[in-house]
Computed example of a mutant assay.
Amino acid sequence: MKSLLAAGLLVLVASTGAALADPIEGTWRMPSGNNATIAPCGSQFCLTYVNGPNAGQTFGRMTATGNGRYEGTVTDYTRNGREFTGKGTLSGNTLSVSGCVLGGLICRSQELTRV
């Protein structure tokens, strides 16, 4: 009986963890054809290149602000690692990530697709 209860609790804990995952978490395909992962890192979500010339490097840190929106910073390695104010918008299996200057007046965006 105890082993059955323990197995039931294990299933409950495992399913609860999956239910608490944020919709932004996972693997994403970038316009370049390379992949990136988005995973929790402290109180934020880190965007990290999986493959390509910047594999292993983090290029963004975002915090959920609600309704599929995220804010934080993005790093542009094509501009010597310059960091910009970042924002993200999740819609289904598409994540639009932008790096902005001048308080968000000028932004450069790219869309990532869930893999």
Rank of each mutant, 00 (worst) to 15 (best):
L90Y: 12
Q57E: 12
G56L: 15
S15F: 01
A21L: 11
L112P: 03
E25I: 10
N51G: 14
S98K: 09
G42T: 04
P23W: 05
R114G: 07
G66V: 02
W28N: 04
R61A: 02
N51E: 04
G104T: 02
G81M: 07
S91Q: 15
L20E: 13
R108Y: 00
K2A: 14
Y70C: 01
A14P: 07
I24T: 13
V50T: 07
M62A: 08
T73E: 07
Y49H: 04
G92K: 13
A36K: 08
K87Q: 13
G72L: 04
K2W: 09
N80M: 14
G86W: 00
T75I: 11
T89L: 09
T27C: 10
N80S: 14
T113H: 05
L9I: 15
L12A: 14
T58F: 05
L105M: 10
A19D: 12
Q110S: 13
A6E: 02
L20Y: 15
F84P: 06
A7E: 06
G104Y: 14
T75C: 09
D22N: 13
V115W: 02
Q57P: 00
L47V: 12
T94S: 14
E111Q: 12
T94E: 05
I24V: 15
F59S: 04
S15A: 07
V115N: 10
G8T: 01
G88C: 13
G26L: 03
L20R: 11
P23E: 09
N51V: 15
Q110C: 03
G72V: 07
V13E: 11
C46Q: 05
L12D: 06
N93S: 08
R69A: 07
K2D: 05
T27V: 14
K87G: 13
A7Q: 06
G81Y: 07
L4W: 06
I24E: 06
G56M: 15
G92Y: 12
A14Y: 15
G52K: 05
T75G: 02
Y70V: 09
Y70W: 10
Q57N: 11
R69K: 04
G88A: 11
A36D: 01
R82C: 03
M62S: 05
L95V: 14
